[in-house]
Write a protein that binds this DNA or RNA. Structure first.
Lengths: 246, 246
DNA sequence: AAAATAATGTGTTTATTTTACACATTAAAA
DNA sequence: TTTTAATGTGTAAAATAAACACATTATTTT
């Protein structure tokens, strides 16, 4: 037992070198990132899956993932995976949860950090070179490889909750969108029907939609007005105090 | 390029062994768990900190953490750390976020998973053997070691949001509590004042408080009624649909 | 060209929830 | 016994959310 400058007894003081030895010790772990990539197309919420690169699982679909480099920020790793595997750049990305069961991966101990990614399918020209990558309707995703079903479901639930509190849904839409587009998006994600008039009222009252004075083109019905989301104004907004409710 | 049973071309098929080689390869990473342990004492929200075991940082406080074992579930690791370092068992624990900046730790690459823990200070007899462990008022936490200030703040914000939507606050209180206790807890965590009458009305209308027909003892004023939280009833509750609001 | 269709755009009314606020009651302290 | 400082209950007003109807516009059909 040693004492510090104030005379307090302090246990277990370690040198930097001792800690370095521990950190470089035998129980280091493979760390991966898995991305749950959502898209919105033909009024359906989709998720981008890839055929498992593991032979044993080749008939199963899996999330896009890869090991994190020893000198790579996990967030950078998520961006890298998206870029490498899909060609997509500049997409919305947020960490959701880390899955660390011992036997979650057949190849050994791999802890994985799950990220949720939202992309605008129309804008980003996805390079689906072969049958490796495929957009799946979220309602028909089942039997994914490894524990990816669990990860997918956690991210989907996360998205359903998150989209009601934050304006991230706009990352799934074109820059210019109609209120019908927006409502279709919310209805697809939340898997519910909403009253059109109350939905409009709600969004107009939040006052983040910019009327760009343009109309829809080439629609088989009366064209609706187009809007942009005012991200700048939202960023300046001071967060409200919600209420206790559970 | 190979083809699968359906004649689809499939790239990058790997054997299990090939993946195992990757997983056991050179870029494995030290993984740690850091616990932000909250307690509620004398109507103040507290956080349990420990003097950094790293000599260089010995004047600074840090979170309780340790490396995750190679064959240890990360959740189990969080429980182990709590048990080893504080003697506490059977506490509320939830994962919050994973921090993976390359240079976040001076001893080398360490990715850490942050957990939020809530304990009842009265019930659990904490073994604070020496000056290593100390309860700090959350409002006076500053200048923690490593990136622990950032982790602490993320967990505190998480708690403030979470407590409004889930009944986890009861883990900070004794089993039997008065409505005044409960309001003091919410006011301390959210750092705000609430109307006493509306606070009561809100909780009574949620209908999860069990009136156990007991009164406070040894209080220097008119004793209030004591309640328990009905966790069973809450578990059965089907989750409501909130509304869009951001 | 006219009529029918199917969408957009704009309210109002009602119900529910939240906020603001006042007074009687009880036990301890003076 | 009086005073004090809490607890416990209720009501009115305001804000928000839900339910609902009709006129307008462009397209499609007749």
């Amino acid at each position: 037992m040693v004492s510090d400058a104030n005379g307090n007894s302090v246990k277990n003081i370690k040198s930097l070198q001792a800690i370095q030895t521990e950190v470089q010790g035998s129980n280091r772990i493979a760390l991966s990132v898995d991305c749950v990539i959502f898209g919105f197309d033909e009024n359906k919420l989709k998720v981008l899956l890839i055929r498992s690169d593991l032979k044993k699982y080749q008939s199963r679909w899996s999330l896009l993932g890869d090991l994190v480099g020893g000198k790579e920020d996990i967030h950078d790793a998520a961006y890298r995976i998206l870029k490498e595997r899909t060609g997509l750049d500049d997409v919305y990305l947020e960490q959701v949860h880390t899955f660390g069961s011992v036997n979650r991966h057949p190849a050994g101990r791999v802890v994985t950090v799950a990220y949720c990614s939202l992309i605008n399918v129309q804008h980003h020209k996805l390079k689906i070179l072969d049958n490796e990558l495929h957009w799946h309707d979220v309602n028909s995703v089942s039997d994914l490889a490894f524990d990816h079903q669990e990860i997918f479901e956690a991210c989907y639930k996360w998205l359903q909750k998150r989209i009601q509190e934050h304006p991230l849904g706009f990352n799934l839409l074109p820059k210019k969108f109609s209120l019908r587009d927006l409502q279709n998006l919310y209805e697809a994600i939340l898997n519910t029907k909403m009253d059109r008039r109350n939905f409009r009222k709600k969004f107009f009252s939040m006052d983040f939609l910019i009327d760009i004075d343009e109309m829809e083109q080439d629609v088989p019905h009366r064209p609706g007005k187009l809007y942009k989301f005012n991200f700048e104004k939202y960023a300046k907004k001071k967060k409200k105090w919600v209420g206790i409710d559970f």
